[in-house]
């Protein structure tokens, strides 16, 4: 047996840590700035973005009913609420909510990632074996970064039209068709990769959000994970259907 007295001769009471008062009195964490609070912010803002994505994919699928229908739908987004409220009121409100959601989501993601890095300053020498989490779980952070980069490109391309052959003056349908034209295959490729990232993000994110808000339980967890995977798959297929249809000429 080990004689601890000898074995631990250089043990001193870890002065810096007993009783550990955080050196910088840990910024008093309120309901939304604690780790749990930030996660809740992430879950709620994530859910808002998911609602948006559902609307977005359903709108996109209108290209399959022709240019008229798609352009009318785009116009409706701008005129919704008229004449009670001026043109673009509803759309602008939605945009504000989305920008806030993206901003808060990224704020919590970044501050939690930094906290996590500080919580494990010394890494394991043995290659850490993931015991539970899949690829989706491990790519939440970098996947998120790819999603933001994509989002910026996507807005420049199809919303503002500055990176689009049809330009900002073109009709939405033209921007879509010319943007995903076969010779711009690299756009479609980037779009596809990013959407797969979105799918992976939601595969973990959706059930994770439910868990974070404390609504998951042992009985529902497996089902939630399956539902998250199924939903993400359908969403990604829905989004990818449009550029691929344009690329192979089904929509022109």
């Amino acid at each position: 047996m080990i004689d601890r007295g000898e074995a631990t001769d250089s043990v001193r009471p870890p002065a810096a840590h007993s009783p550990k008062k955080p050196t910088k009195p840990a910024a008093k964490t309120g309901r939304f700035t604690s780790t749990n609070g930030k996660k809740a912010v992430m879950a709620v803002t994530g859910a808002i973005m998911v609602l948006f994505l559902i609307g977005h994919v359903l709108g996109n699928l209108k290209v399959f009913s022709g240019a008229q229908s798609f352009n009318d739908y785009a116009e409706f987004l701008r005129t919704a609420g008229e004449p009670a409220v001026p043109r673009r009121t509803v759309l602008t409100l939605v945009e504000i909510v989305l920008v806030l959601a993206v901003g808060l989501h990224m704020w919590s993601a970044i501050s939690l990632a930094r906290r996590a890095a500080k919580a494990r300053p010394v890494k394991y020498a043995a290659k850490r074996k993931n015991q539970a989490g899949g690829y989706a779980t491990r790519t939440m952070r970098w996947g998120g970064v790819i999603i933001v980069l994509f989002l910026i490109w996507h807005l420049l391309d199809l919303t503002f039209g500055v990176a689009n052959p049809a330009g900002s003056a073109g009709l939405p349908y033209d921007r879509m068709v010319q943007g995903f034209a076969p010779e711009r295959w690299w756009v479609t490729l980037f779009y596809a990769v990013s959407l797969v990232m979105v799918g992976l993000h939601l595969r973990h994110g959706l059930w994770s959000a439910v868990q974070t808000l404390g609504l998951a339980s042992g009985r529902t967890r497996k089902g939630l994970q399956l539902a998250a995977a199924a939903f993400s798959l359908v969403l990604v297929i829905g989004f990818l259907a449009v550029p691929f249809a344009v690329m192979i000429g089904v929509v022109k």
Binding site: K38, K118, A132, Q211
Partner: peptide
Amino acid sequence: QMDAEGFGGCTNTGE
């Protein structure tokens, strides 16, 4: 207290 001790936040990895 968990936060004050410098532990990280949960991302539901299940590890």
